[in-house]
Nucleic acid binder design. Structure first.
Lengths: 334, 334
DNA sequence: ATGAAAGCGCTAACAG
DNA sequence: CTGTTAGCGCTTTCAT
């Protein structure tokens, strides 16, 4: 591959000038610039971004750590994050940890601060304080999709009021007259999604309804698990008139299960989820859900990360961005 | 961030020695190595991969270009590709082009040969010969999911016999006694998926059935488009007893549409797709489809790319890997 | 077994 | 406006 020096030689200038036509075009006479540009074209020159990164002491890439992009929620997040990164002149490196803390750790120590200028963590088996240590020696880390706006972590984060999402779901079902409601609680995002469940329960309690533990199932965060759990639940508690799932994958699994069981949705049973993934409007009946606005969250996360890169904080409180409140999206399943 | 020199100073050795304990441990006396390792730990030292890449003249990352990771097929491919890359010591950078050739071009010229040692292209609006030019000046490029094993491109590729996939689908429907079959042909992978359609048609013709153009719809590669097309098709040609879709997204859209229309699957209408994405077994009724074995293709693609990086070819024929033949997966929709 | 020195390709002062 | 110089952090001969 041709180098800056090759181009310089060919255009009969020095490397600094070539660098300037690329980065400070106004610092160089038009005719010279033209000559240089021709040389660049003729040689098919491409700047070596590694060398540039080294010289500038910064890198043009951000990293995004998540458990597995095979979970249908993440691609939407990734796409939005990549767009935001691209707009800001960054590349995005997606790091699947495969739910393996070792892999996550390896990514972190290898790329944070060298290949990547900053890391966005969605979901991890790595302890927060381990992340803090990494952030202290390496690149800034932002935690996204943090589930507890009222209890912020020791790291910069973008928090989503999932309790509010749960509350919205509860209110919606109550308004429709449901009293007998089953719950499917997922374990995504590195732990049980209990802010969502708590938000839901609180509203129910305010309405004078005590949750029935027999109608609550805690399961992995997949369509298949939602399916199986729904089958089990409807068998054990056939009286349920509605199902609240802490996320859309579970809800979609439940929808499929109900279809298989011959229970009509929403006539016999209503179903509501949280997130509003694309699939939610693509299934039939389409899924009523509480949208968290993934795109906005992804964008805010990238922006926070970039801000942190440019203005590293001292010993100040880690900044927290609270995402816009989730909103109800009524569809056919309720 | 601590540098090699910092570590060297602290361990009272020189940078070369530190480098050696990291990369050629046998070249350094155990006691010295121990001292160095301690210094590394104490300083929280992390090698700067940019500097290393520059010095070594190679980079530890591979790029994967695709139109949009929001298409549910890609995440599965990406996950498998990343695993394969990781096993080989590479990072994977996912580049969404958003179906915009400009963005694809920008990625290519920016990262190919500098940030990324090689590029895997899944799907692009960039012309093949433009890719060739890039490969000539920069990093090797591998085309994956090539649809025409009988007509190889001027670039290294991993080809999948999609015509065979179409043929398998046709044979399956014929065996079940279907004669009146509608077709949903997608436009994914940068062009119509016509190898699949052709393979299908040939088998039909051998069976003495001439395709009815009125029963063929060409549409974008999404669930929503599949849904709409199926509604339109069943209205216009209600006699159809089966539907062949060139990919699972379309087929799943069709499944939803048929449910909405009150047509029973598979009793009234059978549906078959191609690919076998995860969702195919998660919907109800689950989707009969022709599996292409995404994981094997992704893995083979990464392996080919890495081989090309290590042994650049001269003017020889670009190597082509033919993926294992697609196989029928019988489920509930037929 | 360790050190010294050169260089990867680029940027960033600073001179002229 | 353009050239000179130094150096980013690391690897890699070549000496010692």
């Amino acid at each position: 591959m041709a180098t800056l020096t090759d181009v310089a030689r060919r255009a009969k200038v020095t490397a600094a000038t070539v660098s300037n036509v690329l980065r400070n075009p106004d610092k160089v006479r038009p005719e010279t610039a033209e000559r240089v540009k021709r040389a660049i074209r003729e040689l098919g020159y491409r700047p070596n971004l590694n060398a540039r990164a080294l010289a500038e002491g910064r890198s043009p890439t951000l990293a995004l750590m998540l458990s597995s992009i095979a979970n249908p929620f993440y691609p939407e997040f990734v796409l939005a994050a990549e767009r935001a990164a691209r707009r800001a002149g960054y590349f995005l490196m997606v790091c699947n940890t495969d739910d393996d803390a070792e892999i996550g750790r390896a990514y972190l120590t290898q790329i944070a601060g060298t290949l990547a200028e900053g890391v966005l963590v969605l979901n991890t088996d790595i302890a927060i304080n381990e992340l803090c240590e990494s952030a202290a020696v390496g690149a800034p880390i932002v935690l996204s999709l943090w589930e507890h706006p009222e209890q912020l972590p020791a790291l910069p984060c973008v928090a989503v009021d999932f309790a509010h999402a749960g509350a919205l779901a509860a209110r919606h079902l109550l308004e429709l007259g449901h009293r007998d409601i089953g719950m499917l609680v997922g374990d995504g995002c590195g732990g049980l999604q209990d802010a969502r469940a708590t938000g839901f329960r609180e509203v129910m309690r305010e309405a004078g309804l005590e949750p029935d533990d027999a109608a609550v199932l805690q399961i992995p965060d997949t369509i298949d698990a939602g399916f199986a759990a729904c089958v089990e639940l409807m068998e054990r508690e056939p009286h349920l008139s509605a199902l609240f799932a802490t996320n859309d994958l579970l809800a979609i699994g439940a929808l499929q299960a109900l279809a298989t069981l011959g229970r009509k949705v929403p006539d016999d049973v209503s179903v509501i989820g949280i997130t509003d993934i694309q699939l939610a409007h693509q299934v039939r009946p389409s899924l009523t859900t509480v949208a968290i606005n993934t795109e906005a969250i992804a964008q805010a996360s990238i922006e926070l990360l970039i801000r942190l890169i440019h203005e590293p904080r001292g010993d100040t409180q880690p900044p927290a961005v609270i995402a816009p409140l989730p909103t109800l999206v009524r569809r056919q399943s309720t």
